[in-house]
Design a protein around this nucleic acid. Sequence first.
DNA 1: CTATATACATAGTATCACTAGGTATCTTGT
DNA 2: ACAAGATACCTAGTGATACTATGTATATAG
Lengths: 101, 101
Amino acid sequence: MCILSLLSTREMYGYEISKELDALSGGILRIEEGTLYPLLRRLEERGYLKGEWRYREGKARRYYKITPRGMDVLRKMRAFWAVLITVVNNILYGGESGGRE
Amino acid sequence: MCILSLLSTREMYGYEISKELDALSGGILRIEEGTLYPLLRRLEERGYLKGEWRYREGKARRYYKITPRGMDVLRKMRAFWAVLITVVNNILYGGESGGRE
DNA sequence: CTATATACATAGTATCACTAGGTATCTTGT
DNA sequence: ACAAGATACCTAGTGATACTATGTATATAG
């Protein structure tokens, strides 16, 4: 979900995504390369992303762009994430009152 | 985390936990028995829970109770969960909430 | 010219959720 | 009495996937 969200704002390549996630999350969402690259391929296989090789600064980079199908999945993931937070916080902190956070 | 949290308020047995999670979450946190029972044993192996057979209403039930070590782990999980929400929401909705930048 | 950072990749392992069964008891409807 | 369903626990097998460790190649800094 976080990767799709990052790519919903601009195209990025794998290594850039890992550095960005790391920086934006203060190290909480550090993702190993052995996890990231296979994941990006899975997301592309499923049609959520479209990858494209480009050569910049003497380096071969695979830039990823989110697809309309990916945007749709991202919307559903965001909605589910919001529900999950509510539900889990309800279990963690009891009260049915909607006014926390 | 949700199971530890439920057990931090009272002792429960496996089947009861699954029904409670299902009800409290509106079906979002439905957990299959093939997932639940092995999970409870792992949590007990790690010393987070203590299980005990009891016979009530003609049924053999294994009641689980959270241990001090389990309470400690639960506290850390709750803290991490709060950080995770902040960090993920920051990535999902842009960086306004955390006071960073 | 060596070390580090960048950039992508794969193989092997471990974890764990799920499917799909199994056993046994108790309750409810006919 | 009998069948069906709910309760209550269990295991074996499979699949998805995060991780470790390593390999390849180029560019940059000391």
